[in-house]
Nucleic acid binder design. Structure first.
Length: 455
RNA sequence: GGCGACGUGGCCAAGUGGUUUAAGGCGGAGGUCUGCAAAACCUUUAUUCGGCGGUUCGAAUCCGCCCGUCGCCUCCA
């Protein structure tokens, strides 16, 4: 299997430190708001990686953290006149609801920064002891100049010229690129005791500490969005490699592309705030997954709801294969192994899910085509097996209640009336009733087993 | 200013030197079915890969230039 490594900027053959086991860490979300479709993209991509590695026989340990203490959470708490704990708790719940809804498997562990504070503080202590970090008026900074490899991931070299647009009120840093490991708290803000001050950890240190604690000093895969390459992951490398003196901290860095939104003005109103939970009310998890996986994970797709809708459409064919097709054991068994090979070949090539999906569609077509002349049971088994790797479960969007304002009995009655009209060959009346039903949002289908309807 | 990505049919999107006169999905067209529809199924839908040069027996795929789009460099999946 080949994986594109952001560090080397090319595809590399995947060989974990331990040939049997894979240790992977995915940067999780900062829980100050509902997760949006961009998070869905990332979650789904690494969920598929997780599923596929297990399919290949690896024993995989996947860890994804929650950043549950940071400025945005504090601000939100202030805004809503509550505590950061209440805020983070609320959005952690929402996050799980979202990824469960997307059929994303839970990671083996979901640690929170606030629960690993001891580990974080010890990590910082160690870096100070080794001379990589320094304390300055209650805060602690990493001294970037002490780490020669700084910039190896992002290509951002020490750049004193570049002045960030950010208004940094902090003048206690030695160098422009030095970053906070520990931040002294202002009055009223949440804090933890430390040798340096009552304060809280900087953003990057939690991941280094949690990787170390939950997975080890060196791991196979570290994933996240491309936007995290700098400074987050660059800084993680600095911290972790200085801490353990082991290189590389991460063997394969994987970064998914960023979901883009049409038109800048839309970003605030519609696009960016389109939460996963909101999307799941309108689309099935399969549709969202297919939409995302039909684009390679390293490209930046454009959010387009019509596209998700069209994906929903393409699923009907697959659902039909999954649920309605029966195999005929009395016929000659058909072999579908070539489809499996194609699928694996695609996935082995840096998770080429668009190609893998094409194989699933081709497989579906072949099953359908051959079902009357051959026993296609093996094809059906394979179809489900491959679908499962992509996390497709073929459950329909549960538009549960057919709306309270629509009376089911009434619908049945109208359908009966229409069928009466049809048997009387009173087409005008029949069509009129059909139109009426359509106005109510009821779509009907005449089949050999009678008239079916759906909302 | 620095780092990087990309431009493939109406739309989305694989392919990155010959098995490709370019997968798959959506949409369109034609057909089967139907009272008509819908759904489903079948068939069909780019001699062509932003433009111009070059390398090569051979290029969408490599090189150069030009045009265009986008991401990151600041919290961010």
């Amino acid at each position: 299997m080949k994986i594109y490594n952001s560090l080397s900027r090319k595809k590399e053959i995947f060989e974990p430190f331990d040939p049997q086991r894979v240790y992977m860490y995915i940067c999780g979300v900062t829980v100050y708001d509902h997760s949006h479709l961009g998070h869905a993209l990332s979650s789904i991509v690494f969920d598929v990686l997780y599923r596929y590695l297990r399919y290949k026989g690896y024993s995989v340990k996947k860890v994804q953290n929650f950043t549950d203490i940071d400025d945005k959470i504090i601000n939100k708490a202030l805004q809503e006149k509550t505590s950061s704990e209440v805020i983070s708790e609320k959005y952690i719940k929402s996050f799980f609801q979202s990824i469960d809804g997307l059929n994303v498997l839970r990671s083996d562990s979901h640690p929170r920064a606030t629960e690993d504070m001891e580990e974080i503080i010890n990590f910082i202590k160690n870096l100070i002891d080794k001379g990589y970090a320094y304390e300055s008026s209650g805060s602690v900074y990493f001294n970037v100049k002490k780490f020669d490899d700084y910039g190896k991931l992002s290509g951002n070299v020490h750049n004193e010229e570049y002045k960030s647009s950010r208004v940094d009120e902090n003048h206690s840093k030695k160098h422009n690129n030095d970053f906070a490991l520990w931040k002294i708290s202002n009055a009223g803000e949440p804090f933890w005791d430390s040798p340096w001050s009552k304060g809280r950890p900087g953003w990057h240190i939690e991941c280094s500490a949690m990787v170390k604690k939950h997975l080890g000093a060196q791991i196979d895969i570290h994933g996240g969005g491309m936007d995290l390459i700098f400074p987050h992951h660059e800084n993680e490398i600095a911290q972790s490699e200085c801490f353990s003196s082991k290189k590389p901290f991460v063997k394969y860095w994987m970064h998914n592309g960023m979901l883009r939104v049409k038109g800048a003005e839309m970003s605030k109103s519609l696009g960016n705030t389109f939460s996963i939970n909101e999307a799941l009310k309108r689309f099935s998890s399969d549709a969202i997954r297919l939409w995302i996986l039909q684009t390679h994970y390293r490209t930046n797709p454009l959010l387009d709801l019509d596209l998700i809708k069209s994906t929903e459409k393409s699923l009907t064919r697959l659902r039909l294969i999954n649920s309605e097709l029966k195999s005929k054991p009395e016929l000659k068994k058909m072999n579908f192994i070539s489809f499996k090979q194609r699928f694996i070949e695609s996935m082995d090539d840096d998770l080429n899910t668009p190609k893998a999906i094409a194989t699933i569609f081709d497989l579906a077509k072949m099953i359908k085509k051959s079902s009357s002349t051959h026993d296609v049971s093996q094809g059906l088994i394979l179809f489900r097996e491959l679908s499962n790797i992509l996390g497709l479960n073929y459950k329909k969007l549960t538009k549960d209640k057919v709306a309270n304002d629509v009376n089911i009995n009434e619908i049945e009655l109208m359908i009966e009336e229409r069928n009466q009209a049809r048997s009387d060959k009173n087409w005008k009346e029949a069509d009129l009733i059909r139109d009426k039903l359509l106005e109510l949002g009821i779509e009907i289908t005449d089949t050999t087993e009678g008239t079916k309807w759906k909302k």
